[in-house]
């Protein structure tokens, strides 16, 4: 297949994805009324990520795109991961102090 040719996606696929997204939205709303403790955010973001993946793969045709386009998408997600992970490296350790792992005596020795 040429890189420039358009892949024709059948309307059935679009409809299936559309209803999957609607179902995801419904699950998000239902989950919002339940308290899962610290998993609240994990569940909400998990559903959102799955929906975004469907949009990118099917509505944005990433599944049918050339390898190079897919590589660009993966790189973009990787860059987002860098931003989130290194930012979280600050937030997740903000309350800790070096004295937890290094004895204060060693830390403040002249």
């Amino acid at each position: 297949m040429s890189e420039h040719s358009e892949h024709i996606v059948s309307p059935i696929v679009y409809m299936v994805i559309f209803f999957a997204l609607i179902a995801g939205t419904t699950v998000t709303v239902l989950a919002a009324f339940q308290n899962f403790g610290q998993f609240n955010i994990v569940i909400a973001l998990g559903i959102a990520t799955a929906k975004a993946t469907l949009v990118v793969l099917y509505f944005m045709h990433a599944r049918y795109s050339p390898r190079r386009t897919q590589l660009v998408i993966v790189c973009a997600v990787f860059w987002l991961a860098i931003m989130l992970a290194l930012t979280l490296s600050d937030y997740q350790t903000r309350q800790q102090h070096l004295s937890r792992i290094v004895p204060p005596a060693a830390l403040y020795r002249a």
Binding site: L86, S89, D90, Y91, T93, R94, Q95, Q96, H97, L98
Partner: peptide, 11 residues
Amino acid sequence: TGESTYAALAF
């Protein structure tokens, strides 16, 4: 500016 010591070490 208030970031954690661990993050500062890594950066």
